[in-house]
Design a binder for these strands. Structure first.
Lengths: 219, 219
DNA sequence: CGGCATCCATTTTGATACTG
DNA sequence: CAGTATCAAAATGGATGCCG
């Protein structure tokens, strides 16, 4: 058959987790599926370099490990999609933790020829959410970065976010990835971003508050 | 030379993290070093199957990625040891999160010929710490499992733990791995464990409280 | 075209032998 | 003990072919 599933063979919660998640690409597939069901093609395009055969193999492994399942979207657009199971969705806490650790590695600079997708950055920002600074705030932010729409809603000290429009967002941000990163990493000021027209709805104070609640620079 | 460092080449906090941690064995090495500096031999013995060449390669990669550094223990016992850097120690949150996800995978049953080290289980337990149930409790538990000594100290809603004896522990538990797991997974009762003599210091109520604060069954 | 399966060159890993 | 050297086996990347 395909994979002999090389196991660490250790009775340890970490080792058992790595037996399932440790193979190359697996966690990046989970990352992609965190923002909703995706077609084979979508995954292939987001995961530059994976090769169709390996993607296919991984998805099957993940299916048999109860991380994803295959379903069909209802019309219009009847397409087979891959979706996270409930078990798989429970990995969000772990992935956010890994993202938080990885943010300083971005070093405020994108290497030449490195790939970027706006939702990677938006998830990174989400991972820096600071509940204690969000107490008493109830706001919705909508980001349109490089054409990808994402929103975050802060309510009762918690945040939720996904790739969709927000309901009556208090802040609407529109820019490309570069300008978004510049703001997130403090390379530009909210005032300048506002003057540049990146803010379609909302004001400078709102961006400043948002940046306090999500602060990658502190990571 | 040796390693061409296969990178995902993505400007994403998760991908950058996986570029550093994604290789086989790396996270298990971090796990071992979380409980203090270790010699090459100690690591090799804990990581059954790694092969000395690969362990050597990994440690060098981890050194150049600022995860570990090599140091010498002071006399007596002047030995070269590997130690986590501060950067490396920041991975504890992520590893605990992965352990928490992995606990249900243990399924209350150890497979035949699977390896176990008591500190793996103790870290697993540590990962299930529930701060809200620890409010107002100030206690120290000492575990001697299969000859390995570990302690956890609960204070001001937080827990700390490592592989050493506790200071004036309120509870002292002594058993082998099997009996410890049976307690942790609810396959035996605190009362029975007490009658079996696993509790050297402390009483049944203390075990019950401890099991509420650390509850793998809830994971 | 979406969703794979096959083939093959290149890397990575595992196992063992060997050295300071 | 602390590694290095060597080599076979497995996993991966990339191209290509197939089939509804």
């Amino acid at each position: 058959m395909t994979n002999e599933q090389r196991s660490y063979n250790q009775y340890c919660p970490l080792a058992r987790t790595l037996d399932i998640l440790g193979a190359r690409w697996t966690l990046l597939i989970v990352r992609e599926l965190l923002s909703g069901p995706k077609r084979f093609k979508d995954l292939q395009e987001a995961l530059v370099g994976i090769g169709t055969n390996l993607l296919s193999t991984r998805l099957k492994e993940m299916e048999s490990n109860d991380l994803v399942f295959k379903s069909k979207l209802p019309p219009p657009g009847v397409a087979a999609v891959y979706e996270l199971t409930e078990h798989g969705r429970k990995l969000d806490e772990t992935l956010l933790s890994m993202m938080r650790w990885g943010i300083p590695l971005l070093e405020k600079a994108k290497k030449a020829n490195e790939h970027v997708r706006p939702h990677w950055l938006l998830y990174g920002m989400l991972s820096t959410f600071n509940p204690s600074l969000a107490q008493g705030i109830s706001e919705t932010y909508e980001f349109n970065v490089g054409g990808e729409v994402f929103h975050m809603r802060i309510h009762e000290g918690q945040v939720t976010g996904d790739m969709s429009k927000g309901h009556n967002p208090d802040l609407i941000w529109v820019s490309d990835s570069e300008h978004f990163m510049a703001l997130a990493f403090g390379l530009t000021t909210p005032q300048k971003a506002f003057e540049d027209g990146a803010v379609k709805t909302g004001n400078v104070e709102m961006i400043e508050r948002m940046l306090r609640i999500f602060d990658p620079v502190q990571c």
